[in-house]
Amino acid sequence: MTEQTPMQRALPGLLIAGSLGGVGLVMVSMLSLWPTTEEASGSLAAAQDTPTQVEVANAGAFVLPATVGPGGKGIPLTPARLDAPPPLPAVPVVSPIPSTKAKAATRPRPIRIKIPKIKVNAPIGAVTVDRKGKLGTPPLTRPNQTGWFKGSPVPGELGPSVINGHVSTRKGPAVFDRLRELAKGDQIYVYRSDGKVTRFTVSGIEQASKSTFPTSRVYGNTSNAQLRLITCGGVFNKTAHSYTDNIVVYATLSKKKG
């Protein structure tokens, strides 16, 4: 049998890589209608060339997990496939709080978030998207404040409510510094201006590159009330004052009162 050249032996792998690259390009284009994430400590910047911890962990692997991981002590945070759905609820879900038809000025809003496991007890402000579709963040002068995306449902109502916060500022750790420690089964409490208290239970957590952010999984419609917490992670680029990745926590409404 004629011995194959190095190029002939490598050709099948190159074809697979090329196909996956094409699929990724199409998916990114389709998801461009949703808001993009913003930096947790500065303006959004392109990811640097240095591989992130997630990329290194998956070097040479063509297939990412089909679902978001549970997180937990000693378990690396890795991204799921872009087409993977949100993780399944960790506990039985409860029905959403009916939304009101009130005007924006009188619409209920989240005012405080508590996460006992990581000792978070923080006020919630509001953030919006700019003309480029980038999601804003709380002021850097208020490192303990979180931001609710006003374009998402009020926490407890049908759909995915999105709250973000800084992981750090120039002065040190910020409100979501320990967000990556959360794991499936942990509890998150969100207090609303109408007196209602909602409890969400974490169903999964991932760390994904900002260049391949799971937009559909974070912002897509859901059949129940869910919560997304977002902050930055990965490698910090001192020159651009930005991180390469995002940490995303997925949680589902498990209790409500008030």
Rank of each mutant, 00 (worst) to 15 (best):
C232D: 07
I205S: 09
R131T: 11
I205P: 00
R178S: 13
V127K: 05
R142T: 12
N164E: 09
T212Q: 13
T212Y: 11
R142K: 14
L182E: 04
D194C: 05
D186H: 06
R178L: 11
L135G: 02
N224P: 00
K150D: 12
Q145W: 04
V197R: 15
T201I: 13
Q145C: 01
K196C: 11
D177A: 14
T198V: 15
A122Q: 02
P138H: 00
F200S: 06
R180F: 13
G125V: 01
Q145R: 13
K184A: 11
G204M: 03
G133L: 09
T198Q: 15
C232T: 02
Y219F: 15
P153S: 12
N224C: 03
A122D: 01
V202M: 07
R178A: 09
P138N: 02
V190H: 00
G159Q: 11
T212E: 12
S223Y: 06
T201V: 15
T198D: 12
F200K: 07
G136R: 05
G220L: 01
D186K: 04
V197N: 12
G204V: 05
K196R: 15
Q145P: 02
A122P: 00
Y191I: 07
A126K: 14
S203Y: 06
C232V: 01
N164R: 13
F176C: 00
P214D: 01
L227F: 03
Q226D: 14
Q187T: 13
F149A: 09
K134H: 10
F149V: 08
P160C: 07
R170F: 11
G195L: 10
S216Q: 15
N164A: 03
V218G: 01
N144C: 08
P138I: 03
V162S: 05
I230N: 03
T215C: 08
P138V: 01
T215H: 12
T212F: 11
P155K: 01
G204S: 06
T222L: 07
G125D: 10
T169I: 05
V218Y: 03
P143C: 03
E157F: 00
G204H: 01
D186R: 08
V175I: 09
N121K: 13
T198P: 04
L227I: 02
R170H: 13
A208I: 13
G151N: 07
G151E: 08
